[in-house]
Design a protein around this nucleic acid. Structure first.
Lengths: 189, 189
DNA sequence: AATTGCATGTAAGGAGTTACATGATTAA
DNA sequence: TTAATCATGTAACTCCTTACATGCAATT
């Protein structure tokens, strides 16, 4: 069935910002703000060829001593990205895919992922609740276990990460509502 | 070369806490404080057999209508875990492996991963510095880009996660020093 | 002259998920 | 009796990393 995975959109998204070589795509992920997405040449080069074969990008061999393929996005490629941004497929997208979508959006499109961001927030809130229950279970069931202290340290890690994600997504959702209000206000003005 | 990976220690570690079936191992990771480690039956059952073949665990078929293999750790298995906890292999361990090690330690062994925890803290501090630089680069280079706002949101996610990890590891390191001081005090008392 | 960075790619293998297959036990 | 949970396992497949191979350009 070969469902198109995040990495293909990670590549497609980068060439949608500006025409890029495979090498530059890797640099962008390593050095830029999107460094949450590890990506290797072993994925990039074959996938660029695949995307080119499907007509989503076009490669152009650049002149000069060094061989260099610079890829640009096609209209079909842009359409596919737009569809991907919007798609709400029942299942909650992973945090990586959500960040990836966010990264390739224009501010005007932000509303497209409001539902997905809401889902993310909800899931993290549930995870926190899970941790809260796990902690009281641990304390009641293993109150005498010498390992309890350590297990709570492990739990603390998850809680810290999860709380940060909840705070972040709340901030984004606030901005989304704010943005909508602004657009409405300027429309009615 | 088949270097023994984290998942094998994830399994070995669980049976080191108490004899368990494959099913229980999965439950423990899903429902317990160590739910940072996703693990599937497709990994568990083959690896239990492999560990058994290597003499690190022993399986015992339990009586009763339902077939059920309960695995216990052997002396060799315990030795291997201890060696793994201690091992500092130049390269920084991933956060998952560090958490895994922590999870299977006794409070008395905590000192064994002090170096690795220090490395973790250092790496996260560097990551924060990387983000700080990425932000000022973005602002100077893309101050006029309408996507800047969005890219900073993506950056904020990473910063939030990283700050939480720095705080967590600082807390653990404090506890380690405290624990050492306590042991010293009780020794000299 | 040597090293580092730019640049592209393939092959092999390990890691991990998912779907499938099977069947007992227990609670509603 | 029906659904959920307990319980074990395999096969196929996707995903991804790593090692390898190659060679130019710029810097030291």
């Amino acid at each position: 069935m070969s469902t198109r995975n995040s990495i293909q959109f990670a590549i497609l998204g980068m060439v949608s910002l500006r025409p890029m070589t495979g090498y530059e795509i890797k640099q962008s992920y390593e050095r830029g703000p999107a460094n949450f997405m590890p990506i290797s040449y072993g994925q990039i080069y074959p996938l660029l060829k695949k995307l080119a074969a499907e007509g989503l990008v076009v490669g152009k061999l650049e002149a000069g001593g060094r061989e260099r393929q610079r890829y640009s996005i096609t209209m079909d490629g842009r359409k596919l990205i737009k569809a991907w941004l919007t798609a709400e497929s029942g299942a909650q997208v992973s945090h990586k895919e959500l960040l990836l979508k966010l990264f390739f959006m224009t501010p005007g499109e932000l509303g497209l992922i409001q539902g997905q961001m809401n889902g993310f927030h909800k899931e993290e809130a549930q995870r926190l609740e899970h941790y809260r229950r796990a902690r009281s279970w641990l304390r009641s069931e293993h109150g005498d276990n010498s390992r309890l202290e350590i297990w709570e340290m492990v739990l603390d890690y998850g809680v810290g990460q999860s709380e940060a994600r909840v705070r972040w997504s709340e901030g984004i959702l606030r901005k989304m509502r704010h943005g909508k209000a602004k657009r409405k206000a300027s429309k009615s003005a």
